[in-house]
Design a protein around this nucleic acid. Structure first.
Lengths: 113, 113
DNA sequence: GAGTAAATGATAATAGCGTATCATTAGCAA
DNA sequence: TTGCTAATGATACGCTATTATCATTTACTC
């Protein structure tokens, strides 16, 4: 399970994780994946990536602050590197910003060609 | 229904819409709200605002391009004006960006005080 | 007012995602 | 092997948001 997440270069959903991990271990069930995910989340080894209308994905927690790209065709989520420095400035006065998310939607390199 | 959305200064969820519209018309049911929302969406009079883990909100479609702020305390969604000009640059080469969303989370002016 | 078609509201049904249950299996010490 | 505990997988269940159903009401025409 860890290996699957470790080698994935993008956040994986429970289904993707199940499929990836099944290649190594046969006859894996969803329950086990959910259990592993809970544990890894509690450990802080992975973070949840939530995208509107999508199943939650999970990725290694040691990546720095970054955002995501959602492919509208293959439905996969990719990491984007970096961030925008002036995001917080969008907030009206007196609003306290604690976090933010930037998500791009479109076609990934594979689907765009 | 239209009046409720027209006078709201922020996107409303179906529940909020039901409550707001009920003040004008008595004994309104959820089904009617959902039906109205479908119609208005089809007409293009409103747009859906989807935020991770939140029920879909709806707002007038004639506002320009903008983003949203989600209050973590009162659970209301607010409009932010403007956008960041270099958002698309976050995408890796060969990725085709079709749209993007920027959402800030934190405390709104009311809840921050 | 009578007749008819469309709109409404209460609620059952569905769908997607995640959790709980529980019998079975795997691991492992003696 | 035997016995025992923890982990696993199949699946039932639950929750939330939305849609479908259908009897009833409303609106409107004659």
């Amino acid at each position: 399970m860890r290996a699957a997440l470790e080698s994935a270069e993008r956040p994986l959903s429970v289904d993707e994780l199940l499929e990836a991990a099944s290649r190594r271990v046969k006859g894996l069930g969803v329950a086990t994946v959910y259990r592993a995910v809970s544990t890894l989340l509690a450990e802080g080894w992975i973070d949840a990536v939530e995208i509107r209308g999508e199943a939650t994905r999970y990725e290694r927690a040691d990546k720095g602050h970054h955002h995501h790209f959602q492919c509208e065709k293959c439905d996969r989520t990719f990491d984007l590197s970096g961030c925008l420095d002036n995001v917080r400035k969008l907030a009206p006065p007196r609003f306290r910003v604690r976090q933010h998310s930037v998500t791009l939607y479109g076609l990934c390199a594979g689907c765009a060609s």
